[in-house]
């Protein structure tokens, strides 16, 4: 990554500030038709400003966008890309993890099993969703429903958005590691098309447990990493405030990961980030997902499994 200029090194909140101010100004004018010309001018200015600010984001700024509190979450996307969605619950073992939502969806009339990590918007929701950090029962629910999809020859769509699998006593007691590991093994064997999209945060093993897919896509401002920038900074720099440096070093943004062959495509977000326009972000996601599934529908079950194997077999750097 190129060295950040002072302006680019700004925190996202500072970066976004002039945009938000301008947007507020425009909104205030909407009521008054006499100011329509002035408003148009400001709107143009806003577009230009966004283009300037958001086309050269640093990796750290992208990481902040990926975790933006207003960013669309799985259910925001689902209500926009599915004509109908019927949520199903439980792992048939221990519990129903609200950090993962899953169920039968229909996308352009096609039945799809949709599984996604869900973060909460307000405090109550955040607690209910455990901040998007699944426990073993969440991963086991996901696996159960993937197997159900396989039984009925339905493709699987995984939406990834998690800081990581939940680090807690109860999660360890029930085998967090086993649950993640089992998903990796079973997803490698699934005889139906699997598409995974990192929506926001792809937090390590907790993300990969839904990520062994035929096509792995990332939203433009998503991140996918073995560790959080803060975690990496505090371990290797002994200083969590070095997170911006760690973010750049880890190469955790979509363009880097595409180059490294870890992901297969990037879904373009509206200028200003997905949170600036949920509908546009969802429309782009839907288009990418439909395209991926239609390509994969040409392949036989054996081809799918073999190509998925080959794809992950290629990953790694060996001298």
């Amino acid at each position: 990554m190129k060295d950040a200029t002072p302006e680019q090194a700004m925190d996202l909140s500072q970066l976004e500030k002039p945009v938000l101010e301008l947007e507020a100004q425009i909104r205030a004018m909407e009521m008054d038709p006499s100011q329509s010309k002035e408003r148009e001018k400001l709107e143009k200015k806003l577009e230009k400003l966004k283009a300037e600010l958001f086309t050269n984001l640093t990796d750290w700024q992208r990481a902040q966008l990926a975790r933006h509190p207003k960013r669309p979450y799985t259910l925001d996307y689902l209500e926009r890309i599915c004509e109908r969605f019927e949520e199903l619950h439980g792992d048939r073992r221990f519990g129903d993890d609200a950090a993962i939502v899953a169920g039968m969806g229909w996308i352009e009339g096609n039945p799809v099993m949709v599984i996604g990590q869900q973060k909460g918007r307000d405090t109550k929701q955040k607690i209910l969703r455990n901040f998007g950090m699944p426990k073993p029962e969440g991963y086991r629910k996901a696996l159960r429903l993937m197997k159900l999809a396989e039984k009925f020859q339905r493709p699987v769509l995984c939406l990834i958005d998690t800081p990581g699998a939940y680090p807690g006593v109860d999660a360890e007691e029930r085998g967090q590691a086993e649950a993640i590991a089992r998903n990796l093994l079973e997803m490698a064997k699934l005889e139906v098309p699997v598409v995974a999209v990192v929506l926001g945060e792809g937090g390590s093993g907790g993300a990969l447990a839904l990520g062994v897919a035929d096509r792995v896509l990332m939203m433009e401002n998503a991140i996918y990493s073995v560790i959080s920038p803060e975690g990496c900074a505090s371990i290797l720099w002994k200083d969590a405030s070095q997170a911006p440096k760690a973010a750049a070093a880890l190469k955790l943004t979509a363009p880097h990961l595409l180059e490294l062959g870890i992901i297969d495509g990037i879904v373009k977000e509206p200028l200003g980030g997905a949170h600036s326009n949920f509908d546009a972000a969802a429309a782009a996601l839907k288009e990418a997902v439909v395209e991926a599934f239609s390509e994969l529908s040409e392949l036989s079950a054996e081809q799918l499994v073999e190509e998925r194997y080959q794809k992950f077999a290629r990953m790694g750097s060996v001298g």
Partner: peptide, 9 residues
């Protein structure tokens, strides 16, 4: 039962 993972819906 739904909360405890035994019932889908």
């Amino acid at each position: 039962l739904q909360t405890h993972g035994m019932v889908d819906k």
